[in-house]
Design a protein around this nucleic acid. Sequence first.
DNA 1: CTCCTTTTCATGCGATTGCATGTACTTTAA
DNA 2: TTAAAGTACATGCAATCGCATGAAAAGGAG
Lengths: 143, 143
Amino acid sequence: MALWARFMRVSQAVLADVESELKAAGFPPLAWYDALLELRRAAPDGLRQFELRERMLLAQYNLSRLSDRLAAVGLARREPCPEDGRGQVIFLSEKGRALLDAMWPAYRSSVAKHFAERLDAADAEALARILDQLDPTGSGGSE
Amino acid sequence: MALWARFMRVSQAVLADVESELKAAGFPPLAWYDALLELRRAAPDGLRQFELRERMLLAQYNLSRLSDRLAAVGLARREPCPEDGRGQVIFLSEKGRALLDAMWPAYRSSVAKHFAERLDAADAEALARILDQLDPTGSGGSE
DNA sequence: CTCCTTTTCATGCGATTGCATGTACTTTAA
DNA sequence: TTAAAGTACATGCAATCGCATGAAAAGGAG
């Protein structure tokens, strides 16, 4: 039980450190980066909102507004889905791609500092295995 | 880097699962439990707000309002600190103690289900070591 | 004592989140 | 075709968060 509390506390603290470094560098929240990254992976097809939602583990209303904001500042485009009149398809814009590129070095170095550098290869392997076992979505990384 | 993303995603997902189980059982958020738990550990002396803040890794304004809410529903008492006119001392109330007791079985079983049961002894040891290395506060569990 | 800095806590305000619900479209089935 | 059920997304509203700031007290320097 102490390990549980520690797990939550450390993961939150590390995430907060990385987030605040990015914010200090003038970048938007990590969730934006994650969303844009998924859009780039799906390029050039774009993603339906519900697909993005599944990949990001976000609540539906949450994603609806996230895509609002991304579109509002020009990082993504939203178009009605031709096959499904209910749906929106979200595409990464050039500006979004540029933001990904701009954030990557800062993100990478921040994660290195707060996470990667603190783990050796054996730690990484052990952690990967543990995360597979914990993952409630079952979408393990090593299948 | 993939491990980083996975670490964040899994820890968030597991926490969300536990939180939502507790909420479904009609209990308040985990942060409330954590705060009350710290207050019980500090009993019968109570805690200054800044002490609770350090233990919980919360922003100052956040804790100020959390203690507001705990006091508002009678789970804690706030009294002016006699040694420091700026300070508040927070005490666990009987109602707060009762809530801790009531939440504990549900919390315990939820953490068991989503976390503890999925790890064997070797995993636990490995994870503990890894968390020590990651902990940005340096307040390691094994020092 | 007086002035200045630091610490502790509170709070107004805008942005974000969570919840419940609404709207529009698709699918199913008779 | 038509009605019922399900799916995809949006949104009003209240609660909460983050930020900046304010107020009150403590600690120090002269």
